[in-house]
Amino acid sequence: MPRMPKRVKFRKEMRRVRERKATKGNFVAYGEYGLQALEGCWLTARQIEAGRIAAQHFLKRQGKVYIRVFPDKPVSKKPLEQRMGKGKADVDYWAARVKPGTMLFEIAGVPEDIAKRTLVRIAMKMPVRCRFVGRRLHV
């Protein structure tokens, strides 16, 4: 099932600025390897779910997949052939704001080659260019 928040303060939301780079959530924090977005997008709940299913099918019961993004942004869309105006449309889908550098998925408990093959499969379901990364320098 696609994810969405349990409760929200407001039913609809403005679009807001998209052109920024990630300053947090941009490194592997929970797992050993991660899939990092190199471009920004609104990642829909369905795309996140598709990635999760792709990973689950490939991994069977091995390892653990962490989903680092959550679709908390409601995106509204007017029906087809609808004239403009008459107020803001109903919510069509939920999306996660992804900035360049955002870590999308992480994986733990599997060797590097399996982690890489899993994350490549997830990357195919993503609407943006992604890269495979490991843990960064620790101080």
């Binding site: 099932m1 929200v8 407001f10 919510v91």
Partner: peptide, 24 residues
């Protein structure tokens, strides 16, 4: 188990479910 996870997911959000609006 995968079945447990699926059951949990269905508990959390069903098809067409909408989040509760606090301010409303």
């Amino acid at each position: 188990m995968e079945e447990d996870l699926d059951a949990e997911a269905q508990d959390v959000d069903g098809v067409g479910a909408e989040p509760e609006v606090i301010t409303e």
